[in-house]
Design a protein around this nucleic acid. Structure first.
Lengths: 209, 209
DNA sequence: TGCTCGTCAAGAGCACTGCTCTCTTTTCTG
DNA sequence: CAGAAAAGAGAGCAGTGCTCTTGACGAGCA
């Protein structure tokens, strides 16, 4: 039942986005009374949470799958980038739900952070395996040492001076995907994928992969 | 009248976000009938457009102001980053409206792109003035030459091999701000501003500023 | 002066939303 | 087979965007 609701909800989400998602519409499509859906998802936010978790897991699956049979760090990085970008282009509303503005009043519960970490961990493993020596690396100031340690937890063993560049490249990836998806580039660019790839390769050199 | 509506709408937007914005609530606060508001903004999207344009202009103002009395490229880059980040932290819902997921069904009209470009142009001027020689720059493949030209239009005179890194740094900035604002970092980081700064400085070295 | 005419606002109404409450039906279990 | 628990239905509340009709008001013109 929960499964059927989330499946239908996902198609609605894909068609009209998170704000256009309506419990009543889902109920209608199932031939149920709208009140019955509330038994499975007391609140619209609960349904959204389920969709978010599913989304993170789907992206995590894609991210992990992208690493199969790849060893070269720059290659793995590019493959991960493609996994994220393809997911975003394939399921834009889901990507927006995960990495776009949070829906107002919605506070992501704890259950979402583990699935969300999966993709991040794939990235962390690339960095950790590569042990890169970024050409522009500089030791971070002592003030942020605890934060650097916290950030390092996803990329164990990576030296201090690489942690910040690694995080920065990670934000650049999602910034690029979000810009492309949310129309920030306008319609001036024609070879979107090639531009994306070139940015990813540039970041690989930045990181020293 | 239009001014008063947008002002009240902005406070509502700041309090509850774009989806929580209600024409009726604005009308109530003005002591008007809800139908009267529709005379000035036929549709909720029209009101949103006005808020978006105002938001881009406010950010553009801040971005331009951040450049006064600054000449060092790395310094200007950091100042611009702070302008964007401060704006986002100050007015999170407005930032989300500009750079987060687009509200479903809403298509940004042409009038928004000129204000949106203001901030981008500030960045382009930094790059154009600095004429950086990125340590990791590589000539882009010929396929994307037209796109590189299009992207160069905001940073005139910048050589081919710097355009892509420049765009990538730009996406990294907004990726970092969005990650921080949308809670992607969780609550593990304590010195957010210092981490942000360190990332910005790292990107400055990446660009060769 | 008298009279249109366009602007502004109000009010009612439609179709929709999330959510709650009560009541009935179905299903499972001892 | 009877009773309890679960599942669903239905009505209802308060809210939404938006439309349509109706009424007030003031400027321009005969």
């Amino acid at each position: 039942m929960v499964r059927e609701i989330t499946d239908i909800a996902r198609t609605h989400l894909a068609r009209e986005g998170a704000a256009g998602l309506s419990l009543r519409a889902v109920a209608r499509e199932m031939g149920m009374a709208s009140s019955a859906v509330h038994r499975y998802f007391p609140t619209k936010d609960d349904l959204l949470t389920a969709l978010i978790i599913d989304g993170y897991n789907a992206l995590g699956d894609a991210a992990e799958a992208s690493q199969h049979d790849r060893t070269d760090p720059a290659d793995r990085w590019l493959a991960l980038g493609h996994a994220v970008r393809d997911f975003a282009l394939d399921r834009p509303h889901e990507y927006a739900l995960l990495y776009g503005s949070p829906v107002p009043g919605y506070q992501a519960p704890q259950d979402t952070i583990a699935p969300a970490m999966r993709t991040t961990l794939v990235y962390g493993r690339i960095i950790a395996d590569a042990r890169p020596t970024s050409p522009v690396a500089v030791s971070p100031p002592a003030v942020i040492a605890p934060d650097v340690d916290a950030l390092r937890s996803v990329m164990p063993g990576v030296p201090d001076e690489v942690v910040i560049p690694a995080v920065t490249a990670w934000t650049a990836l999602f910034g690029a995907v979000s810009f492309e998806l949310f129309g920030q580039f306008g319609d001036t660019i024609t070879h979107r994928r090639e531009i994306f790839d070139e940015g990813m390769r540039s970041l690989a050199r930045y990181l020293g992969l």
